[in-house]
């Protein structure tokens, strides 16, 4: 990749030009996320940099919007709802999803293709269609507007992610380990918890993280399946952005970016651990 010493001027221009273009694209990717962080400390109710902020005057900055977030009833309620819904949905997706992924990775599974297509479908079908269908169907059976309904809907949306990550981990799983455990006298349950589970755990956890973030970020389905009692954080942001746009949203957004960074770091750690456990060299 390095520039050859004998490169012509044209090649040099292209080489540096290309890097500048890539730099601009990276800027396009990351700048919108970074720009909201300083704006969330704005002392004014504006969505742009005030002259005081540009002059780095401490008076231009304040924690006012964060205080708003932590004292406003609506926002606190929304946060608690999110924290109540996402873990429950994750638990359902992970427990059922892991079992099914183990089943799917067996050597002889009838109708494997069809089953896989059905299990992956919540990820493929556009959210608005899932939301519409769930709204119609859940109102028929009385789940519309209930906590339980939202949890079930979010669990269904998270399942494809669990299936994909766990089956990917199971591809690298050495089956002779379970046979060895059985040979040493362990029953299937003991084998699962003592041998298989620790080895596929990184996959399960990262699948769980995906499921969690799916539910935690989800807004379309909860808008339809939920009612005012299930207002989640994204829902509150959505209404905030649509109706009276308040800078508190930027404070919330900044906090959420922090959570994303945390999740990303956790996934990376898990990926490395999984590779080490499976004896693959870390790339």
């Amino acid at each position: 990749m390095a520039l050859a010493p004998y490169a012509t001027t044209g090649q040099r221009i292209w080489y540096y030009g290309f890097r500048v273009i890539c730099g601009l694209i990276f800027f396009f990717l990351i700048a919108p996320i970074l720009v909201i962080i300083p704006l969330s400390f704005n002392a004014q109710d504006f969505f742009t940099f005030t002259p005081k902020m540009l002059a780095l005057d401490p008076e231009g900055y304040s924690l006012k919007h964060y205080r708003d977030f932590f004292t406003s009833n609506d926002w606190q309620q929304a946060m608690w709802n999110s924290l109540k819904i996402a873990p429950a949905a994750t638990l359902i997706s992970v427990s059922l999803g892991t079992l099914a992924a183990i089943g799917l990775s067996q050597s002889h599974v009838p109708f494997r293709g069809a089953i896989m297509a059905i299990l992956i479908s919540p990820m493929i079908v556009p959210l608005i269609i899932s939301a519409a269908g769930m709204y119609f169907f859940y109102s028929r059976i009385g789940l519309q507007g209930t906590y339980f309904g939202v949890v079930l809907a979010h669990a269904a949306l998270g399942i494809p992610f669990v299936i994909i990550t766990v089956t990917a981990t199971l591809i690298g799983f050495d089956r002779s380990l379970t046979r060895a455990a059985a040979n040493l006298g362990a029953g299937p349950v003991r084998t699962f918890f003592k041998v298989q589970m620790p080895l596929i755990l990184p996959g399960v956890v990262s699948g769980g993280l995906f499921a969690f973030i799916t539910s935690f970020d989800e807004v379309v389905v909860v808008l339809f399946v939920g009612s005012a009692g299930q207002t989640t954080l994204p829902w509150q942001m959505f209404t905030g952005l649509r109706e009276q746009i308040s800078p508190t949203i930027l404070a919330v957004a900044t906090l959420l970016v922090g959570i994303s960074i945390l999740l990303l770091a956790m996934l990376e750690v898990l990926r490395r651990r999984s590779e080490r456990l499976r004896g693959l060299s870390p790339s």
Partner: peptide, 11 residues
């Protein structure tokens, strides 16, 4: 990994 709404509000 950043929330869809965060990115939309940024824009």
């Amino acid at each position: 990994w950043t929330s869809l709404l965060v990115r939309t509000s940024a824009w």
